[in-house]
Simulated scan of single mutants.
Amino acid sequence: MPDVFKALADPTRRKVLQILKSGPQTAGELSDAFPVSKPTMSAHFNVLKQAGLVVTEKAGKSVIYHLNVSVLEEALLGFSEAFGFGRAAADTNRETPQ
């Protein structure tokens, strides 16, 4: 989980995740959204990938990034448990009335 919080600590990486909420993007498309060099963005992508927050697929010469929501959810649940909110409360909020 430390890798997840390290990844989330940077505003550029948080913005990448926000962009990926709307759907998969290539590395080039994501890089174009930021005023930094492609090698700098590549370093950000590697941190996100190492934390498990994104998964990649190859499509020809392109790398396509997908948001991995399950890792983010687990990190947030772990964080909430550390501060006494607990998994039971989160599970209760997910239940739908029948």
Rank of each mutant, 00 (worst) to 15 (best):
I64Y: 02
H66S: 12
V16C: 10
I64W: 00
S22T: 13
V63Q: 03
A82S: 13
L30C: 01
K58V: 04
T26E: 01
H66R: 14
K61H: 10
H44Q: 12
T26S: 14
F83V: 14
L77P: 08
L8G: 03
I19R: 12
L17N: 10
F45D: 08
F34K: 06
K61F: 07
S62R: 14
V63L: 09
R87Y: 09
A89W: 00
T12Y: 05
L53A: 12
M41D: 06
S80W: 02
P2H: 07
I19C: 01
A88Q: 03
E29V: 09
G78H: 08
L67I: 12
L72G: 11
P39E: 06
T40G: 02
D91E: 15
G78I: 06
F5Y: 14
T40C: 05
P35H: 13
G28M: 09
I64D: 02
S22D: 13
V63S: 03
A27G: 11
K21C: 13
G23F: 04
K49F: 11
I19Q: 11
K61S: 09
T12H: 05
K61W: 08
R13W: 01
L48G: 11
V54H: 01
I19K: 08
A89M: 03
M1V: 10
V4E: 02
K15F: 12
A33R: 14
P2C: 03
G52T: 12
N68I: 01
T56N: 05
L76R: 14
S37L: 13
R13K: 12
D32M: 10
P39T: 05
V69D: 09
D91I: 03
R14A: 05
A82D: 10
G78Q: 14
D32W: 01
N68Y: 13
F34A: 03
Q98T: 08
A27H: 07
